[in-house]
Design a protein around this nucleic acid. Structure first.
Lengths: 338, 338
DNA sequence: GTGAAAGCGCTAACAA
DNA sequence: TTGTTAGCGCTTTCAC
């Protein structure tokens, strides 16, 4: 029933030559008689022959697969980053196996185990919000598995990584709010384990300090990266002792949640409270009012992380020659800030 | 530098037994002396041994990989479906290689070639909007590659598939609008090649007919699945000879675009025009006003497609015993309809 | 209960 | 330029 899938031995027998010659002809990289090569190629085409990637990989001790670990498919940032990752990967003949952790450290660890067992040639990782430290990553490093981190890292993760300048992005955003006359600027920050959360918070604090303003507890709340938690955090600020006239959120999703909370209280955006997000996901333009935010070059982050990983894998760059790439952000003002 | 990765031969040598025994012990599925097994397992644990998936696959002629082809990571439907797919796949020890076509038929064909070359054990496919027919899929079928289609199919695709009842979903939605007193209901439909577009359009037409209303050209426009095209289509309707008091859109993204167009014209939603979407993506609740829509069990679609594919792969169901699964939708009324 | 040996499909010395 | 041969790491007869 099932049509047989051909092997190079089949081709060799059909042509009355050896399988080595077939193998060589197929990869045109060796001295093969042009006539022979043509015959092989023609037969391969007509039989729709596809050489077995895995057998080749087993032999050459590589799988041509890159493992990607992300917190969730449903975070638009990762959808877009994945497009960049896939583009570069497939350009070099690599496939992707993508695992999502659902923001759980345990799942992250098992994903790593899973992928190394599948003998991926390298790993692209964006940490879960629950990941407390980089122990599991350092183990990978010791084992010599090429790893590049992107977007979400923890402080002690001494591995190649592609990040954005979270600190400056946040400081610029808050400075902008200050410049527009806001006095009581609230901040909803991210999980304290991830560097991105700390950096953005520090940017917020420094922007206030530079303006001679005090930061104060009642205007600060912590969330994760979900809409729901953004809503809750905003509510707690709104119910606090000081009424904010602006809020800077650790990410767009949290900003969306904050907007819901603000509207729910019958307050107007931006008249009563300005809202500033971070990332510039596609939906930032679609909410009402459209969201002012700090734009990240998302796709480029994915592309760059992949390029660097491929440099390690293809041994262009020594594995212990750690590389860090910091990309710039850009402030985008829309209608949620006055 | 790089720590060696161990093989079963290493374990065997270390323990002074044969690699066959190690192999058997590791898979606890054969008669192995409990003591021996314990020794093997203990050593494997302490060495952090991970058996080579591909070598096993090469031997057993399977890769434990499922290929997934989707139009784009950035369509929320697929992010969610992917979660369901991954959940079921990993439960059975399968990995996912995901390719996106970017809505291009050419890319779809090359993704298929790519994945079969990688010897995936089966394929989960949702067609691109440009795919004109099912020729390429039938070729897969002839080659005996297990394939399950989901969500987006073309009419002549005689393969196992998981769909929703697009027709009924659409008819119910439009009937609801009729029942709420709307008289001039517009429709923005999808690409005419995909069944989903035709079915939803037919549901729209039949709902009107049942109510004794005429459908008319000026109230119908075609789009793809993008926000931009939804906006453009809505604009063309708005500039037409008949002013609609409601619009039923082929999907949520198109509805978001339509909402932008309507607002841009200074019209109010739902007071002047009601808007109805299809799918119930997460952002349906976040736009203003929140979007009334037809809810699909997205994650369940992914889970079910994967379960069925696995049945074929694991030969529980004969490959020529085609199976079609049609899931129900549910109308969700929010604030975009009056 | 365990070992020896063959073989999955491919690549890469090494010979010819 | 081509063929022979060994072997990647694993599973699975077939003996013992």
């Amino acid at each position: 029933m099932t049509k047989k899938t051909y092997t190079i031995v089949d081709l060799a027998n059909l042509l009355g030559i050896s399988k080595s010659t077939v193998s060589r002809a197929l990869r045109d990289q060796y001295d093969v008689n042009p006539t022979t090569r043509e015959k092989v190629l023609a037969l391969a085409r007509s039989l729709d022959f596809q050489s077995n990637h895995f057998a080749a990989g087993l032999r050459g001790n590589q799988s041509f697969i890159i493992g990607v670990i992300i917190p969730s498919f449903s975070i638009p940032f990762y959808s877009i980053a994945l497009e960049g990752i896939q583009q570069v990967a497939s350009q070099y003949g690599y496939n992707l196996i993508v695992c999502q952790t659902g923001e759980s450290f345990t799942n992250e660890e098992s994903a790593i185990r899973h992928l190394t067992r599948s003998r991926v040639d390298g790993l692209l990782i964006s940490l879960s919000k629950d990941t407390p430290n980089a122990q599991h990553l350092l183990k990978l490093k010791q084992r010599g598995v090429p790893v590049v981190l992107f977007n979400r890292v923890v402080r002690d993760a001494d591995l190649p990584r592609v990040l954005i300048d979270d600190y400056t992005g946040a400081r610029d955003a808050v400075s902008y709010l200050v410049g527009r006359g806001h006095r009581d600027i609230a901040h909803i920050s991210g999980p304290c384990t991830l560097m991105l959360g700390n950096e953005r918070e520090q940017g917020y604090l420094d922007a206030l300090r530079e303006a001679g303003m005090e930061s104060c507890r009642p205007l600060m709340a912590r969330s994760d990266f979900s809409i729901e938690s953004g809503k809750k955090a905003m509510l707690s600020i709104l119910n606090g002792s000081i009424k904010p006239d602006a809020v800077f959120c650790v990410c767009d999703a949290v900003a969306f949640g904050a907007m819901e909370a603000i509207k729910g209280k019958g307050l107007r955006i931006p008249d009563d409270i300005s809202v500033m997000g971070f990332t510039d996901e596609p939906f930032a333009t679609l909410v009402t009012p459209s969201l002012s935010t700090v734009c990240q070059p998302i796709k480029q982050i994915g592309e760059m992380a992949t390029s660097i990983l491929l440099e390690y894998i293809r041994d262009i760059r020594g594995i212990h020659n750690r590389k860090e790439e910091i990309l710039e952000t850009r402030l985008i003002i829309r209608d949620s800030t006055r």
